[in-house]
Design a protein around this nucleic acid. Structure first.
Length: 591
RNA sequence: GGUCCUGUGGAGCAGUUGGAGUGCUCGCCGCCCUGUCAAGGCGGAGGUCGCGGGUUCAAGUCCCGUCAGGACCGCCA
């Protein structure tokens, strides 16, 4: 080792020792005759002191240096209680510049805000900043905690292929050309879903993997084209067993990394969550629940409210908004594809209902409205009417926006819940919104629950699944299901989904074939690991917990990827080869 | 695919009604400075106002197009 200590670990107890440190110049305070340098290494920062040493004047920020000196208590009155090392300093006797730094593209400084593009372009400098480095370290500990919990329960960590066959999930695949078979392509896995089920058939019984997944979809703040799941699958279990395990992992993570003991994981059915919060991932840190008014407004003359569903959400104090602010909500709703957001404000003094919608409603409907939705004078009431699901989603989005605008969110709070009893299917619609069939809400291997396993065809819109999502502060952090292990049930599900035998064989014949050989009942869960780490680290973006994230459009500002390929690469990869007439089927089955 | 926002020295920003590349904080370079800790003082360098076109006597500013980044909708089981 070229150093004897890590600078950030030095304390008063080291006083008198001669130490050799190595690190980076974080900041310099040059007083002429005496120069202070904050020396940063992975352990933190320590002040080193030069006295009448010419070479100190040539040091610049982010030079990499090695120093030898004596640890001394700081002169009385000069301690810095802000720093763990603030009671001591190192008086330098020997300096070696290990490498110099060019002028920096941005300040490597906790206090400076830097644009994300510049940070990602020079991510290696960004990661020198303690807060960014801390996020990397936290993620590493989260991985370790997950492995510890799962290892203690006899789970087997298995790596599954990343060069594989296009899988039946909903997203677009990333494709990889195959030089040895021109015209044939691998797909990168959207998740290890099928492999982990095969591992259950294989009798491993308990599998997990911190798995990279790839989906070629458009970006969002919390989406990357490659992301990580903590992927888990178990045999001979029921929904309760998976939930119990998942809670154990989440409890351990939040206890050790957030210092938070989770009291309980309340459960909401999917339909309750939609009815009360207008979301399948409700943020329970605040109330502001939805009210259903379909019955209440039955018989109304107001055409807009003659709908399948009418609901409302209350904005506390919302009556104080200006006309401009209330109009702003219309734009907000239109940006979500709604026609608008009807509202009524209750006069702060009289409680009288006012607003454009009020004059369309009868005296009776107006007078009972406040009680029906739990509003008080001075509040605003927003309405949505139309197809149940869409209207509830709009109100749910309004609920989140209300909480944000009125400061109802306790940023220091943690709220967890399970969303259970998810529907098996949702209507599949064409471009103009006509229903053309059914599609899986989760995926086609999700098992109907005991009530529906024999008759889900009779009411596909009502059938419920053994599917569960875990939600933290309005973020879905994990989801899973009990899988279908009976061939007859699987066949019936495919039939309802309009997936022909031929298509099923073509897409995942290898899984169906495996299921001919005594598959065990099994189920599992996958955590969105980037999101979990984001929440634990208190950052706003999953990019903060990814070492080298991509920016919009899948561009990597650091490497410049993706790049064009040369004509030679193109020829070798076989990108332009004719597609073979028939793709080879896995596992010997034919399409 | 759609809507909106933002592009101004190395970084982060401001820039009024269209009137000189104007300003702020940080960084950078030089000098001064022996107790600072986001040190301080003095001086200095550094600009294709994203790019292209248009309107105008005059464009960072207005208009059109385009590129890049961001947010949201669609999409992502």
């Amino acid at each position: 080792m070229i150093r004897t200590h890590q600078g950030g670990t030095l304390r008063a107890s080291h006083a008198g020792q001669t130490v050799t440190l190595a690190g980076w110049v974080a900041r310099r305070r040059d007083h002429g005759g005496v120069t202070f340098i904050d020396l940063r290494d992975a352990s933190g920062v320590v002040q080193i002191v030069f006295r009448d040493q010419e070479e100190a004047h040539h040091l610049r920020n982010e030079f990499c240096v090695k120093v030898t000196g004596t640890v001394e208590p700081r002169p009385a009155g000069n301690e810095n209680p802000e720093l763990p090392t603030g009671s001591i300093e190192v008086i330098v006797t020997e300096l070696q510049v290990l490498s110099e730094s060019a002028p920096l593209p941005f300040p490597v400084d906790e206090h400076v805000t830097v644009g994300e593009e510049a940070r990602l372009r020079h991510r290696y400098l960004d990661l020198r900043r303690p807060a960014q480095a801390a996020a990397m370290r936290l993620r590493s500990r989260a991985n370790a905690i997950a492995r510890e919990v799962l290892g203690a329960r006899d789970f087997v960590e298995v790596e599954t292929p990343t060069l594989t066959r296009s899988t039946p999930e909903g997203a677009r695949d990333f494709l990889v050309p195959v030089r040895l078979q021109p015209g044939s392509w691998y797909a990168l896995p959207q998740s290890p879903q099928l492999f982990k089920q095969l591992l259950m058939v294989a009798g491993l019984e308990r599998y997990y993997q911190i798995a990279r997944c790839y989906r070629d979809e458009d970006f969002r703040a919390d989406r990357q084209p490659e992301f990580t799941q903590l992927d888990i699958e178990m045999s001979f279990v029921e929904q309760e067993d998976v939930i119990e395990l998942a809670e154990g992992i989440v409890r351990a993570l939040w206890k050790e990394l957030a210092g938070h003991e989770i009291v309980s994981f309340p459960r909401l059915s999917y339909h309750d969550a939609m009815d009360r919060y207008g979301s399948d991932k409700p943020d329970l840190r605040y109330g502001v629940e939805l009210s259903e008014l379909t019955e209440y407004f039955s018989g109304t003359e107001f055409r807009v409210f003659q709908a399948e569903y009418v609901g409302a959400v209350v904005m506390p104090g919302g009556a104080a908004q200006t006309r401009k602010e209330l109009d702003g909500w219309q734009d907000w709703a239109k940006a979500r594809g709604a026609r608008g957001l009807a509202y009524v404000v209750l006069d702060a003094e009289s409680g009288e209902a006012r607003g454009p919608v009020a004059k369309n409603l009868s005296e009776a409907h107006l007078s009972g409205l406040a009680d029906a939705v739990g509003a008080k004078p001075g509040d605003a009431i927003f309405f949505a009417a139309g197809p149940r699901h869409a209207a509830q989603e709009l109100l749910g989005a309004a609920r989140v926006e209300i909480a944000r605008r009125t400061g109802l969110i306790d940023e220091s709070a943690w709220s967890f819940c399970w969303i259970v009893d998810a529907p098996m299917f949702e209507p599949a619609t064409d471009e103009v919104g006509r229903q053309i069939g059914w599609t899986s809400l989760h995926h086609p291997f999700t098992s109907p629950n005991a009530d529906w396993v024999d008759n889900f065809e009779s009411a596909p819109d009502k059938a419920l699944a053994y599917a569960y999502d875990i939600v933290c502060n309005g973020n879905e952090i994990g989801g899973g299901s009990i899988r279908i292990h009976r061939a007859d049930v699987q066949k019936r599900v495919f039939k309802l989904l309009g997936i022909s035998d031929e298509e099923a064989q073509d897409k995942f014949g290898f899984l169906l074939e495996a299921f001919q050989y005594g598959p065990p009942p099994h189920g599992g869960i996958a955590f969105g690991w980037d999101r979990v780490c984001m929440l634990l680290s208190g950052t706003d973006s999953i990019r903060d917990v990814i070492a080298f994230p991509k920016s919009g459009g899948g561009y990597d500002p650091l490497t410049g990827a993706p790049t064009p390929i040369t004509p030679q690469q193109r020829r070798e990869a076989g990108v332009d080869a004719q597609t073979p007439a028939r793709a080879k089927q896995g596992a010997g089955s034919t399409a």
